[in-house]
Design a protein around this nucleic acid. Structure first.
Lengths: 108, 108
DNA sequence: TAGGTATTTAGAAATTTTTCTAAATACGCA
DNA sequence: TGCGTATTTAGAAAAATTTCTAAATACCTA
């Protein structure tokens, strides 16, 4: 559940729309799916990406699966942006910059 | 240059690493490329994504092209997260939520 | 102007992501 | 138990992204 999954999850418009919908409270997979013109299987795929990214959490009730926003993860993301925004010519040394996880290992 | 391009640009680890490198000031395409095990053509492709997303700006000097962080765009992104984080049961109505740009138009 | 360095463009191959259909699983209720 | 609803999994097709090689462009300097 690193930055990679999270940023990847956020890169899809359907998944961002799901997050926006969840702003108003938790919803079942079916309720979420009703807003899109896609099969339930596809919705399930997107919900799984969001869950793996830590952006939502799920809870089961009867035979519904409810999804809910997990705001703590996007606080981490916001911090990542803030570190990036902290300019080089600040007075105090802000400490070591957080490194992004580029796969910089051997290509060919 | 909407959210779509920006989030997409941020979803790649190489591009996030480039942004981190630029935290210390502007760099030429060649200097940036030297940090990765990829061809210049591939680097050029990534830099173009970042530029189209508004995350960096470029300036030409001699026959070098310098890239520089454009922090104003990630302020917008941070706002998007903050609106998402503003819970449903806040006292004051925070105004209309910004809608993500899901392509919810006719599928098949 | 010719040659050299820096970077981008074009087009194709490789890889990854998104979507679908069909089938499987899970659970509640009569 | 057996049926019906909700959701997920598996596997394949379609679409998008990443990467490369080769060639083109841009600009400086001798």
């Amino acid at each position: 559940m690193g930055f990679q999954e999270t940023f990847k999850a956020l890169s899809d418009p359907v998944r961002r729309e799901i997050l926006t919908m969840l702003r108003d409270g938790k919803m079942s997979a079916g309720e979420i799916g009703a807003h899109f013109d896609m099969t339930g299987a596809t919705m399930s795929y997107h919900l799984k990406q969001l869950k793996n990214a830590g952006l939502v959490s799920e809870s089961k009730e009867k035979n519904f699966v409810y999804y809910e926003l997990n705001t703590s993860v996007f606080e981490e993301i916001v911090m990542w942006f803030e570190e990036l925004g902290a300019k080089k010519n600040e007075k105090t040394d802000m400490g070591n910059s957080r490194t992004a996880d580029a796969d910089n290992s051997g290509g060919n």
